[in-house]
């Protein structure tokens, strides 16, 4: 199941399953819009890495880049993406198709758009199994019912013949997860899997994902803007802002000892504290792609802005083992 542990694998967690190094994805005719800018992270066997960011932060483009699903005029301009040591950027499209839905499954926010409305949900899950030759035609119905049962769809035998529109949003998301799990992937990429759902349904899906992760020994790359969801599900967290990972660490590093002014600002802006008190908002707006400042992209909104923040973006620097920050406050040279 796991590849040989890489030499620099840290003590905590399993071996590296997915290693993204220096990934840069650009858009525009001349590649002038950098949606993902030199990001590096690792998803280890059995862990959940949370990728947090606002709209335009590049978190979904990161997911598409890993799957090699970035459409023209977008393209991956630099970096490596290794799955169990194999460079996904170097393999053929045919091999990549085997990886998609095989070793890596992707589930989206809106299950209605990802399911085909004219086929029954059972037949769509069956298709996923047959394409990857997990079972033959005779055994497929039983295998599908078993999968629907594992994602806790009530009466899975009866639901098999239902069409997507006959299911509630929560059940549709379960079907999506069942399709994702059909080929026993090692990595599940979940892009805002519960954002469209109500609170009580979201809680059920999050609990389900937690259980499935244990049962199927999954690693999860969870993409969300919801810090509550992140705190509940992630082992480690990477915070993205304007295409860059500005901070990365364990879930406790991020929530207990946040270092980057953006991370601190996000956590401080959440409602809580004295009812009716003004919230500590981050002033200003997220910069648009193509209008990024030459230095740190957060500098225009940053309460700790210094002269050099506007000159060049800071490099990634560790503040503690496994806790990295991209900020001049923490680059080891002090705030000078």
């Amino acid at each position: 199941m796991t590849a040989a542990a890489s030499a620099d694998a840290p003590a905590r967690g399993g071996s590296a399953l997915l290693e993204v190094d220096g990934l840069t994805t650009v858009f525009g005719a001349e590649g002038e819009l950098t949606a993902v800018d030199d990001i590096s992270f690792t998803v280890r066997a059995g862990e959940t890495l949370g990728l947090v960011g606002e709209s335009g932060s590049g978190k979904s483009v990161t997911a598409l880049s890993i799957m090699r699903l970035v459409e023209s005029p977008g393209r991956i301009a630099a970096g490596t993406i290794r799955l169990r040591g194999r460079n996904l950027r170097a393999i053929s499209e045919r091999e990549m198709r085997e990886v998609r839905g095989g070793e890596i499954a992707l589930i989206f926010q809106e299950p209605m758009t990802a399911l085909n409305p004219v086929f029954s949900v059972g037949s769509q899950v069956a298709e996923a199994l047959l394409v990857h030759k997990r079972v033959d035609r005779r055994g497929v119905r039983d295998a599908v019912v078993e999968l629907l049962e594992s994602v806790r769809i009530p009466d899975p035998g009866l639901r098999y013949d239902d069409y997507p529109h006959q299911l509630s949003g929560g059940l549709r998301q379960r079907v999506m997860i069942a399709m994702g799990l059909a080929c026993r992937p090692a990595l599940l990429i979940a892009d805002e899997p519960t954002t469209a759902l109500d609170a009580t349904l979201q809680a059920q899906i999050l609990d389900l994902l937690g259980d499935l992760k244990e049962r199927f020994a999954l690693s999860v790359l969870l993409i969300t803007h919801d810090l509550g969801v992140m705190a509940e599900t992630a082992d480690r967290v990477a915070i993205m802002y304007a295409g860059r990972i500005v901070e990365q660490g364990t879930v406790r590093d991020i929530f207990r000892r946040p270092k980057h002014p953006y991370t601190r600002g996000l956590l401080a802006s959440l409602p809580g504290g004295t009812p009716g008190a003004r919230l500590k908002a981050i002033e200003g707006t997220v910069p648009r792609l193509g209008q990024l400042p030459p230095g740190c992209a957060f500098a225009p909104r940053c309460p700790d802005r210094m002269a050099r923040c506007d000159e060049a973006p800071p490099a990634v620097a560790p503040v503690a083992p496994g806790h990295d920050v991209r900020c001049y406050l923490h680059d080891g040279e002090g705030a000078g």
């Binding site: 609170a199 009580t200 809680a203 609990d207 992140m230 929530f255």
Partner: peptide, 20 residues
């Protein structure tokens, strides 16, 4: 049930849920 379903932005918060 609704209150217990809200994800709390605190990794050490009580996670016990009440189902509807």
């Amino acid at each position: 049930a609704l209150l217990s379903a809200i994800p709390v932005p605190d990794p050490d918060a009580d996670r016990s849920r009440i189902a509807v």
